[in-house]
């Protein structure tokens, strides 16, 4: 387990040895691609409790589960307090459950790049299911949707942010909606509002179901998992699964390339004073960038 934990650290750090890690994973004969489910919501919807309930269900079905929980880092200090484990104490000491808290680090594409690599690694370590959990503030929920096979958006009757979430364009990324805390007032209203919104949306081949849950009592969790499985088989049947995974690999490669290029450029500017001087004098970033990418190589 410590090897896995350490490897994830290397990934988070964008350590060059990721390349070797990738090769090792590729050569790993038992490596499988785990199913990836993303959970996102505004704070205070009981999402961690719901994830905990889903993990409980999966463990009953003898599946191993890894949870990657992300929280934003402070943009000022880089520090973070990651508190998602608190809700998952039930699974402490279960060797088939791996929980890792990740700071989002605040750099562009950071979360999705790191989690994609981590998911492959978790597959190599034999995990059947991967759950990505993130607080939907800012970019992170879009990044989750870009990585997960199925994205679950969690809403609640209280707090009044359900409507706000929908306005923020969450509708497009949700494959399954959960209305958690279905035991409190206002639950029917949220479901009705959501249904109206979905009916107004353009017709697609997959219509996101709305699942009411009471995560604290494990209610509705089975229905939720069935809905997630139904979405998976829809992806398979329509050929979307293959399409998605290919597109993801292409996107990921492009992102890594961008990252490499960015770093190469920074280094060039750092190491070549004449180049930097010219850039500062002429004010021509586009031309300078092109020149660096054309003429310089790593190593």
């Amino acid at each position: 387990m410590r090897a896995l934990a350490r490897a994830i650290t290397l990934i988070e750090r964008r350590d060059p040895s990721i390349r070797d890690l990738e090769d090792a994973v590729r050569d790993h004969t038992d490596a499988q691609v785990p199913d990836v489910t993303g959970f996102t919501s505004a704070p205070g919807t009981g999402k961690s409790t719901l994830v905990d309930a889903v993990v409980t269900l999966l463990r009953k079905r003898s599946q191993s589960v890894a949870v990657l929980a992300t929280d934003p880092n402070s943009p000022f200090t880089g520090g973070a307090i990651l508190g998602d484990r608190i809700r998952m104490q039930r699974h402490a000491l279960d060797p088939k459950v791996f929980i890792r808290s990740m700071g989002a680090r605040g750099h562009l594409g950071g979360l999705s790049l790191a989690s994609r690599e981590a998911i492959r690694l978790l597959g190599a370590f034999g995990f059947d299911q991967v759950i990505l959990e993130t607080v939907g503030v800012g970019q992170s929920e879009l990044e989750v949707a870009a990585v997960a096979d199925t994205t679950v958006v969690v809403l609640t009757p209280n707090l009044g942010d359900s409507v706000q979430m929908i306005k923020a364009g969450i509708l497009e990324i949700a494959d399954v909606f959960v209305v958690n805390k279905a035991d409190i007032d206002g639950h029917g209203r949220v479901v009705a509002e959501l249904r109206t919104m979905l009916n107004m949306a353009p017709k697609t081949s997959w219509k996101p179901p709305i699942i009411p849950t009471v995560a604290t009592r494990q209610e509705g969790v089975q229905q939720l998992w069935e809905a997630i499985l139904a979405h998976r088989s829809h992806l398979e049947k329509t050929g979307k699964a293959k399409e998605l995974s290919e597109r993801r690999l292409r996107d990921e490669t492009a992102e890594v390339a961008a990252e490499l290029a960015r770093e190469r450029t920074r280094r060039a500017l750092r190491e070549d004073p004449t180049l930097t001087e010219r850039l500062l004098k002429d004010g021509t970033p586009y031309r300078t960038a092109e020149e660096i990418l054309r003429t310089r190589t790593d190593n």
Partner: peptide, 21 residues
């Protein structure tokens, strides 16, 4: 909070943890 503000990543595991946990 102080450690976060000093730039550390703090994983808070909550109450009543056994040494094993």
């Amino acid at each position: 909070r102080a450690l976060r503000d000093a730039g550390y990543e703090v994983i808070y595991t909550g109450l009543r943890q056994t040494p094993e946990m």
